[in-house]
Simulated scan of single mutants.
Amino acid sequence: MSCKKETKSQFEDVSKAPIITKPDYYSTKHLMECEDLKVLHASSNIKIIDFRKPDIFSKEHIINAVNIWRTDIEDDSFPYKGIMAGRTKIEDLFSRLGIKNGDEIVIYDDNGGCDSSRLWWVLKNYGFHSVKILNGGLTQWKHKKGRLTSKVVKYDTSNFKFPLENNMSLYADLEDIKSLIIDDNKILLDTRTDDEFSGKRQKRGASRGGHIPNSILLDWSHTIDFNASQKFKPYKDLLELYRQKGITWEKEIYVYCHTGVRSAHTTFVLTELLGFKNVKNYDGSWVEWSFNRDLPFKQDTITTLFK
């Protein structure tokens, strides 16, 4: 939330062309289709962020995109990885990249929107709302014959600042999860794989395998059409997926994964696409929980360490 009066999004002034695609979701405020980006791509107030590893970005990316990766938006002062960076670090990063306060940000990746959702979630926490995820990411962009390049664009530096007030309505930390009492109206949702949940697989960065007691499992990737478009599945399919796990609108949902990336994706699906009102993403997730040896955990099998 900003202390200043909000102005009409400049995104609406870029082109009078109607939105080409209107998916049947609760909201598409933070979602963009590739057809629409092709129409609006040349706008001076749009900044496209390629949220992939730098070496992959350097080979090919959408024209005029700048590159950000997970480590750029992490707080490296913790003894484990993945914690969200502070406001100042991200403000400095955006300023170096030439991102301005009045820009509309479009983020894409090549992983079903998983990585893009993490940046969306961080920006929402700090009160910046002019951000959209490209539905289907680079895979869909290529399918729609979108232009690519290996040339890196550099914008003049800016003085990017977040609004004075945070908006942490989607945020949960370690203390929130420790004090969480699970009842019929509250759900702790693990969005990792079956093997991670059971403890069979321990990913690098975790101190042990397993899951937080009383959590239920729903792999984030089940919400994406990975066999074809890499776009989000239709509204009715998503809703049924969560209903099968007892996850309905009136519940309070706390989500976690390995480092809060996949669970940020689930937070996007639940809040933006389905309209859930009470969803929080545990920032430290399993990496932080497993680091604290005094905290309880459950493990269903013998653990094997994986990278």
Rank of each mutant, 00 (worst) to 15 (best):
D195T: 14
G205C: 09
Q140P: 04
S117T: 01
P213C: 08
G146F: 08
K200L: 10
S117Q: 07
K178I: 12
I224C: 13
G205S: 09
E165L: 12
V152I: 15
V131I: 15
W120S: 10
N159V: 11
K186R: 15
T139L: 09
N111Y: 08
T223R: 12
D195L: 11
Y126E: 02
L189K: 04
N125R: 09
F160G: 13
V153G: 02
H211V: 06
H143T: 13
K124Y: 12
A228E: 15
G112S: 06
K145S: 12
I212R: 01
S215C: 04
E196I: 00
D190N: 14
N125I: 06
L119R: 07
G127P: 01
D109H: 10
G112P: 02
G209I: 03
Q140F: 12
F226P: 04
T223D: 15
T139D: 10
L148Y: 05
R118Q: 09
R192S: 07
F160K: 06
E175M: 05
F160S: 10
K151F: 10
D176L: 03
S116L: 03
K203D: 13
I216M: 03
R147T: 14
G199R: 01
N214W: 00
G127D: 11
A172S: 15
G136I: 06
F162Q: 08
